[in-house]
Computed example of a mutant assay.
Amino acid sequence: MHQRLQRPKHRTAFFADTTALILFFTTTGIINERFIAGMDWNQVLYARLLGAALMIPVARPYGVWRDWVMTRANQSRVSRVFWDSIALVSFQVPIYAAIIAFSGASGGDLVRGTLGAALMMLFLGRPYGAFLNGVRKLFGLPPGGDKPMSLNS
Rank of each mutant, 00 (worst) to 15 (best):
N133M: 05
G107S: 07
V135P: 05
F35V: 11
V44Y: 14
G144W: 05
Y96I: 02
G108C: 12
T18G: 03
N42E: 14
G63L: 08
M55D: 04
I30R: 00
V58R: 02
D109Y: 14
A16N: 07
T71L: 06
A20Y: 03
G113P: 02
G113Q: 05
S150K: 10
G113C: 04
F24G: 01
A101V: 10
W41C: 01
V64F: 07
L23H: 00
N32S: 10
V135Y: 01
A117D: 04
P143G: 15
Q92W: 10
K147C: 09
W65M: 07
I22D: 03
W83Q: 05
D67V: 09
N42T: 14
W68N: 07
G38P: 07
S150W: 08
N152E: 11
D67K: 01
R72G: 05
H2Q: 15
L122M: 14
A97W: 12
A37E: 09
I30W: 11
G29H: 08
Q92A: 08
Y46R: 15
Q6E: 07
I95D: 00
N133L: 06
A52G: 12
I100R: 03
T19C: 09
P94S: 03
L122N: 03
V64C: 08
A105Q: 01
V44I: 15
A16I: 14
R7L: 14
T19G: 03
A20V: 05
I56G: 00
H2D: 15
M55S: 08
A47P: 12
R66G: 11
G38L: 14
G51S: 13
L54N: 10
G29F: 09
W68Q: 09
H2M: 14
Y46V: 15
F102G: 04
S106K: 00
G116W: 08
M70T: 10
L54V: 13
L23V: 08
S153H: 10
K147L: 11
Y128A: 03
G107K: 11
G129M: 15
A87H: 06
R34N: 04
S150L: 09
L138D: 02
M55P: 01
R77P: 01
M149A: 11
S76C: 12
V89T: 03
S153W: 14
T27I: 12
V81C: 01
A101P: 00
L119M: 10
A53R: 08
I36H: 04
L141W: 04
G104E: 06
A98F: 12
T71M: 07
L124A: 11
K9D: 11
S76N: 10
V78N: 12
